[in-house]
């Protein structure tokens, strides 16, 4: 247990520099976007003096590094600032949008885990069969498919032709969970396909290795049935691989959400970032990127802790 605690402490300590680096890079990239926020803020018919005044008021005239550090210091005090465009507190904006993104990401992860692992297990236990051939051939295809293209295809078929799911928008989960899930289904499926393909492939190869191992021969020699060998020993032995993959999938789902939310016109954190970046609303971009970074790091930390608990070999490292 001591090793696990040390692991948590070390990871939490690493959080600070990673978050700082990520937000700094985004901040510098934003400078490349054409346009001047002071111009936008001042309005269409503002005088040159007025624009200069606004520039000084918001501190845009200061050196970039000073601007960045003052933002970061405020963050450390719990203040994410206000939106340049709407004047609303950034934290409030994120809190409005984030639930929609989290719903899609979690939903998509559940679909991917159930379908991907099932396909992988089916393929691994029937090597050379038709199921196996299907999984191995479509897995590479699934990884290569762009999710936005798939999204458009899904909308065309399931929303516009069959009217099974709404084509766009989102509903808050807390108000009407059923409706929220119906709205989130197509985006979640579009995001899940790539992860399903990856999971199925990796589950298959990891499980084939475990099932041909010497300890599985021992399990058979002691009279265990194939189901106990597969579901108890097989899955437990590949759980570290699976959890690590799911952790990586979370990163992928959040970055994929930016595009998918645009396709489905979902007011989520991804579309918030995209819209704010185009308009150089840097406090909002920074704040959202910070949130994404923290979520990704915490997910990876959870994965590491679970791995250490599941596999004594990981804990010993």
């Amino acid at each position: 247990m001591g090793t696990t605690l040390r692991l948590v402490a070390r990871r939490l300590w690493q959080l600070l520099p990673i978050v700082m680096f990520a937000t700094l890079v985004v901040f510098l990239l934003l400078q490349l976007v054409p346009g001047d926020p002071a111009l936008i803020l001042a309005g269409d018919y503002a005088s040159k003096e007025r624009i200069e005044e606004i520039r000084q008021l918001y501190g845009f005239d200061r050196p970039l590094i000073v601007q960045y550090l003052s933002w970061f210091l405020n963050v450390l005090h719990g203040d994410l600032g206000t939106s340049l465009l709407s004047g609303a507190p950034v934290l409030e904006l994120i809190m409005q949008r984030m639930p929609n993104t989290v719903l899609i990401a979690v939903y998509s992860l559940i679909i991917a885990a159930v379908v991907g692992i099932t396909l992988g297990v089916l393929a691994a236990t029937r090597v050379g069969s038709r199921v196996d051939a299907f999984v191995t051939s479509t897995a590479s295809l699934g990884v290569a498919l762009p999710s936005f293209w798939l999204a458009i295809l899904l909308v065309a078929t399931f929303a516009l032709q069959l009217h099974l799911f709404p084509a766009t928008g989102a509903r808050p989960f807390t108000v009407n969970p059923g409706d929220a899930i119906r709205h989130a289904t197509l985006p979640a499926v579009a995001l899940a396909v790539g992860v399903i393909a990856e999971l199925a492939r990796q589950t298959r190869s990891a499980l084939i290795e475990v099932l041909s191992s010497q300890y599985v021969r021992t399990l058979r020699a002691k009279g265990l049935g194939p189901m106990a060998i597969l579901w108890k020993h097989g899955l437990r032995n590949i759980s570290v691989t699976l959890l690590t993959l799911l952790g990586l999938a979370v990163n992928r789902l959040f970055s994929g959400a930016v595009v998918i939310e645009a396709v489905f016109a979902i007011p989520g954190a991804g579309s918030l970032v995209a819209y704010s970046a185009i308009n150089k609303d840097f406090p909002v971009v920074q704040g959202t990127v910070l949130m994404f970074a923290v979520i990704v790091i915490l997910v990876n930390l959870t994965v590491d802790i679970l791995n250490a608990l599941l596999d004594p070999r990981v804990a010993e490292e």
């Binding site: 010497q214 300890y215 021969r217 021992t218 020699a221 020993h233 032995n237 596999d311 070999r313």
Partner: peptide, 16 residues
């Protein structure tokens, strides 16, 4: 009928 194998390292499941 039971069996003991050559490699005790790899013949036991490492995660139990």
């Amino acid at each position: 009928i039971s069996m003991v194998f050559q490699e005790p390292m790899s013949a036991l499941d490492p995660v139990f």
